[in-house]
């Protein structure tokens, strides 16, 4: 089961995890990314490339399934404006054993950071600035090449 969603609404990570548990797998690893309260940040806004986003996330999940025994994978990414503390992204990987679930989960979020067409803008009160891509994110993603 691969479930990929791009949505403006908040997601319920407990409900998403429960859907994977129903598959009868032995291990589930998940990652949730939240809006961090960096100095002065009040909100963020996520822009994306609608014609490409769904397919790029689907391709990541498919690649993960080709690398690991992964009966279930979920990727949910929100777009639009979000306040500090709100969830942005949810990734989960379900596998018979923990090592594969943990590795697949890390792969999905590391590669999502460099391969999926999303752009983040930070708001500090009235002022807004685009977030710069980090070299450390490229390095983490390259570990999976």
């Amino acid at each position: 089961m691969i479930d990929v969603r791009i949505q403006a609404e908040r997601f319920d990570s407990a409900a998403l995890l429960a859907a994977l548990e129903a598959d009868g797998v032995g291990a589930i690893a998940s990652f949730t990314g939240l809006v961090r309260s960096d100095v002065g940040v009040t909100a963020i806004e996520l822009e994306h490339y609608p014609a490409m986003t769904q397919a790029s996330l689907q391709a990541l999940a498919t690649e993960a399934q080709s690398r690991w025994n992964l009966p279930g994978a979920i990727i949910v990414h929100r777009v639009g404006k979000m306040m500090v503390g709100e969830p942005i992204v949810f990734v989960a990987a379900a596998s018979p054993h923990r090592a594969e679930a943990l590795a697949a989960c890390a792969f999905l979020i590391d590669r999502l950071k460099t391969d999926a067409p999303f752009w983040k803008k930070e708001y500090r009160g009235e002022s807004a600035a685009w977030v710069e891509a980090k070299a450390s994110d490229n390095a983490r993603a390259a570990n999976w090449d």
Partner: peptide, 26 residues
Amino acid sequence: DQKMVGADTLLDNAKELAIFPPVTGG
């Protein structure tokens, strides 16, 4: 056409070209 490519890619037969900064999702 919704696939990431390099700057040296030829545009023959291309329908849509997207130009953007390095991505920062997640």
